[in-house]
C-alpha cells in the first residue's frame, strides 16, 4: 500500500491529526449542546465557516456580514424578550431590555466599523472575529430554540436542519461563493527526524488540546460548569436548585459558537473554506459525537480524531470516494450505538 510509504504516511497522519483535532472540538460542542438542550445541532459547522470567513473579510479590510446578522438577531431577540416580559406584566423591564440591546448593538457596530478598515494586527482581528461569532450562539438559541423548549428531540432536529439552511444561505450572501484562506499564524516547519510538521499544524493541535483542558476545568471546578452538567443529567433536578434551562441553554450555545469560531480560525490557514463547507465539517464532528453516543466527551473526541485520520488516508487513495467512506462509516456506528442504548419502559410506578 502506497499510504504506508515512510515519506507519505507521516504527512497524512499529521494532516489527519490536525483536522481531527478540530473535528474533536466540534464533537465536544455537539455533545455538550445535545446533553444540555436536547438539540442535535446540525449548524455547528456553520460557526466554523463564519469564523474563517469573518476573519478573511477582516483581512481584506471590509466589514463582515456577520455584523448585520448579529444586529438583526439582537433586535429580534430583544423584541421577543420584551414581548414575553410584557405579557407577564413586566412591561418596564421589557423596555429596559430593548434599550440595553440597542446600546449593545450600537456599540458592536461602532467597534466593528472602526476596526475593520484599519487592517489591525492578526490577533486583534481574531478577537474581533470571536466577538462577532460567539454572540450568534446565545442569540440563535433565544430566537430559534427557546420557543421550542418543550418540543421533542425530532422537532428540534428539524429546526436545526432548517437553521442550517438559513445560515448557509446567509453565508453565501455575506461572503460570496468563493473559498477563502486566512494567513498562517506561524510560518515554517518543525522537523523531528523523518517527520516534518508545520508550526501551524502544531498550533492547531496544541490550541485544541488547551481548549479541551479548559473545558474540562470549567465543567469540573466552576459553579456554572457544574450547573451545565447538572442540567444535562437531570433537567428537573437542575430547575429545582434554581438553574433555569434557558440560561443553561444560552451558556451552552455561547460555548458552542465560541468553539466553532475558534475552530474556524484554526482551520482557516490549512483548508479553503467556502460558504457551504460547514455541513460536511460539522457532520464529521457528528460522526465523532455519535461514536460517543452523544454523551461521552472522551469517546467523542477520540472518535472525531479517528474520523480525521480516516478522511486523510481516504482522500489520498480514493479521493472521489472519501465522503462516501466517512458517512457510510456512520451507519455501523449508529447501529452499534442504538443497540447498546437501553430504553426504559415508560409505564412505571
Amino acid at each position: 500500500m502506497q499510504i504506508f510509504d515512510p515519506t507519505i504516511f507521516p504527512i497524512l497522519a499529521a494532516d489527519g491529526l490536525t483536522n481531527g483535532a478540530v473535528y474533536a472540538l466540534l464533537a465536544l460542542a455537539l455533545v455538550l449542546v445535545f446533553a444540555v438542550t436536547r438539540v442535535i445541532f446540525i449548524p455547528q459547522g456553520e460557526f466554523v465557516v463564519f469564523g474563517t470567513l469573518t476573519l478573511a473579510t477582516l483581512q481584506l479590510g471590509r466589514t463582515p456580514g456577520t455584523l448585520w446578522l448579529v444586529l438583526a438577531l439582537l433586535g429580534i431577540a430583544a423584541l421577543m424578550e420584551a414581548f414575553s416580559l410584557a405579557r407577564n406584566g413586566q412591561a418596564r423591564r421589557g423596555l429596559v431590555t430593548v434599550g440595553v440591546a440597542a446600546l449593545l448593538g450600537v456599540g458592536t457596530w461602532a467597534v466593528t466599523d472602526w476596526l475593520a478598515p484599519l487592517k489591525a494586527p492578526l490577533w486583534v482581528q481574531v478577537i474581533l472575529t470571536l466577538g462577532l461569532v460567539a454572540p450568534l450562539g446565545p442569540l440563535l438559541y433565544r430566537v430559534v430554540y427557546q420557543p421550542l423548549q418543550n418540543a421533542t428531540v425530532l422537532v428540534l432536529l428539524i429546526a436545526s436542519v432548517a437553521l442550517h439552511l438559513v445560515l448557509t444561505g446567509l453565508a453565501l450572501v455575506f461572503f460570496g461563493p468563493e473559498g477563502s484562506r486566512t494567513p498562517a499564524f506561524f510560518e515554517g516547519n518543525l522537523t523531528l527526524g523523518q517527520v516534518t510538521l508545520s508550526w501551524q499544524s502544531l498550533l492547531v493541535i496544541v490550541a485544541s488540546a488547551a481548549l479541551m483542558l479548559g473545558l474540562y476545568l470549567f465543567f469540573e471546578r466552576t459553579m456554572p460548569g457544574k450547573a451545565l452538567r447538572a442540567t444535562a443529567v437531570n433537567r428537573l433536578g437542575a430547575r429545582l436548585v434554581g438553574i433555569s434551562p434557558s440560561s443553561a441553554g444560552m451558556l451552552t450555545f455561547t460555548l458552542a459558537a465560541l468553539i466553532g469560531a475558534l475552530g474556524g480560525v484554526l482551520i482557516g490557514p490549512s483548508v479553503a473554506v467556502t460558504y457551504d463547507s460547514g455541513f460536511l465539517i460539522g457532520l464529521k464532528g457528528f460522526v465523532g459525537a455519535i461514536i460517543g453516543g452523544l454523551v461521552s466527551y472522551p469517546l467523542a473526541a477520540a472518535g472525531a480524531i479517528l474520523v480525521g485520520l480516516i478522511e486523510s488516508f481516504a482522500s489520498f487513495s480514493l479521493s472521489a470516494w472519501k465522503e462516501v467512506i466517512v458517512f457510510t462509516l456512520i451507519l455501523p456506528v449508529l447501529l452499534w450505538r442504538s443497540l447498546t442504548t437501553r430504553h426504559i419502559p415508560e409505564d412505571e410506578e
Binding site: A230, V233, N234
Partner: peptide, 8 residues
C-alpha cells in the same frame, strides 16, 4: 423521584 444528579 428525588431527581438527583446521578452521574455527579
Amino acid at each position: 423521584r428525588r431527581d438527583l444528579f446521578a452521574s455527579m
